[in-house]
Simulated assay, not measured.
Amino acid sequence: MSLNVELLEQSFEKVKPRADEFAASFYDNLFAAHPEVKPLFAETNMAKQRKLLLASLVLVVENLRKPEVLEKALKNLGAKHVGYGTVPQHYPAVGEAILTTFEQYLQQDWTPEVKQAWVDAFGAISTLMLDGAKEDYALETV
Rank of each mutant, 00 (worst) to 15 (best):
E103Q: 14
E103M: 06
E103Y: 02
E103A: 11
Q104Y: 01
Q104D: 12
Q104C: 06
Q104E: 14
Y105G: 02
Y105I: 08
L106Y: 02
L106T: 05
Q107V: 12
Q107S: 10
Q107W: 06
Q107K: 14
Q107L: 08
Q107A: 14
Q107I: 07
Q107E: 12
Q108S: 12
Q108T: 11
Q108Y: 09
D109S: 07
D109F: 06
D109L: 01
D109N: 10
W110E: 00
W110N: 00
W110S: 01
T111W: 05
T111A: 03
T111F: 06
P112E: 08
P112A: 05
P112L: 04
V114K: 00
V114L: 03
V114Q: 01
V114I: 09
V114A: 07
V114S: 03
K115V: 00
K115L: 03
K115G: 00
K115M: 03
K115R: 15
Q116I: 01
Q116C: 04
Q116R: 09
Q116M: 10
Q116W: 01
Q116F: 00
Q116Y: 03
A117N: 07
A117S: 15
A117L: 09
A117F: 01
W118G: 01
W118K: 01
W118Y: 09
V119L: 06
V119C: 05
V119M: 06
D120I: 13
D120G: 04
D120A: 13
A121I: 08
A121D: 06
A121G: 10
F122M: 07
F122W: 14
F122N: 04
F122C: 05
F122K: 07
F122V: 03
F122A: 03
F122S: 04
G123T: 06
G123F: 09
A124L: 15
A124M: 15
A124E: 15
I125S: 03
I125L: 10
I125F: 09
I125Q: 00
I125E: 01
S126H: 13
S126G: 13
T127P: 02
T127Q: 13
T127C: 09
L128N: 00
L128K: 08
L128C: 02
L128A: 05
M129T: 00
M129P: 01
M129C: 05
M129I: 04
M129L: 07
M129H: 04
M129D: 05
L130G: 05
L130Y: 11
L130Q: 14
L130F: 10
L130T: 10
L130V: 11
L130C: 07
L130R: 10
D131P: 02
D131T: 11
D131R: 12
D131E: 15
G132I: 12
G132T: 12
G132A: 14
G132D: 09
A133H: 04
A133C: 12
K134Q: 12
K134T: 10
K134L: 03
K134P: 00
E135Y: 03
E135T: 11
E135W: 04
D136E: 14
D136Y: 12
D136A: 14
Y137W: 13
Y137M: 10
Y137T: 11
Y137H: 08
Y137P: 00
Y137Q: 13
A138C: 08
A138Y: 13
A138V: 13
A138H: 11
A138M: 14
L139H: 12
L139A: 15
L139Q: 15
L139T: 15
L139I: 13
L139C: 11
L139F: 14
E140V: 12
E140S: 15
E140G: 15
E140W: 13
